[in-house]
Simulated scan of single mutants.
Amino acid sequence: MAETVAEVMAELAALEDPKARAVNERHGDDHGVNLTKLRAIAKRLKTRQDLALELWATGDSAARLLALLICRPKAFGRDELDAMLREARTPKVHDWLVNYVVKKSSHAEDLRSVWMADPDPVVASAGWALTTDRVAKKPEDLDLPALLDVIEGEMKEAPDRLQWAMNHCLAQIGIDHADHRARALDIGERLEVLKDYPTPPNCTSPYAPAWIAEMVARRTGS
């Protein structure tokens, strides 16, 4: 039997965990649902574009995360995705929208260039995330020296989420493109962005020079 949005919302409410919410709120998110349990609901529901739209419209973050798991990414129009991105203010919803939906859309490249130039740093961070994906998977026609110019000039003073996205792009250029690696390392060392970021044992530091060095070493086996 098809489940209604009210039934799904009630199920999500029953999964609310105050401890999970407290942890998530420290990262800027506003939901308390365990993501493994959320994914289990999505697996049961399968693809449901109609239900996904209704869940997104609730504005509830847990409902929106579930919507992004059960939607049909290629069913969204360009303007729909743009509007959704501008509504997605919490980090997890923003991240899943970009990675699970926009990247699979035929509108990704158009939105990438529009979002990178947006004055809203949260919107711009989505453009940088899409650019990082292209650096890794489809760098043809990307002007990597120009990207490094922008990172060099703007990353140090960028707001947190935009800074994080630009730093990821810097690291990806250094990891994937040996001819630009020395400059990427130099920019990272001079700007020192995220140099002191607390990194758990056995995790890769987000500090670009350390990140680049570790990933290159893994690839070369050195």
Rank of each mutant, 00 (worst) to 15 (best):
L45I: 00
L45P: 00
K46H: 12
K46R: 14
K46L: 08
T47W: 12
T47D: 01
R48I: 01
R48G: 08
Q49W: 13
Q49C: 11
Q49T: 03
Q49V: 10
Q49S: 03
Q49F: 10
D50C: 06
D50V: 13
L51G: 01
L51N: 08
A52S: 10
A52I: 01
E54T: 04
E54L: 11
L55W: 05
L55S: 06
W56Q: 07
W56L: 10
W56C: 09
A57P: 06
A57W: 12
T58V: 12
T58G: 11
T58Y: 09
T58F: 02
T58P: 13
T58N: 02
T58M: 07
T58E: 01
G59I: 05
G59W: 12
G59R: 14
D60Y: 03
S61V: 09
S61W: 04
A62M: 10
A63K: 00
A63G: 05
R64E: 10
R64G: 11
R64N: 04
R64M: 03
L66V: 00
L66Q: 00
A67P: 02
L68I: 08
L68T: 04
L68N: 00
L69P: 11
L69M: 14
I70D: 05
I70C: 02
C71K: 09
R72S: 15
P73F: 09
P73G: 13
K74S: 15
A75T: 09
F76Q: 07
G77D: 08
R78T: 14
R78A: 11
D79W: 02
E80S: 12
L81E: 02
L81D: 14
L81F: 04
L81V: 13
D82F: 15
A83H: 14
M84N: 01
L85P: 06
L85F: 10
R86M: 10
E87Y: 06
E87P: 02
A88N: 02
A88G: 06
A88E: 10
A88L: 01
R89G: 14
T90I: 05
T90P: 07
T90S: 05
P91L: 09
K92F: 13
V93K: 08
V93M: 12
V93L: 05
V93W: 09
H94D: 13
H94I: 15
D95H: 14
D95L: 10
D95P: 04
W96D: 09
W96E: 11
W96M: 07
L97P: 11
L97Y: 06
L97I: 13
V98A: 11
N99T: 13
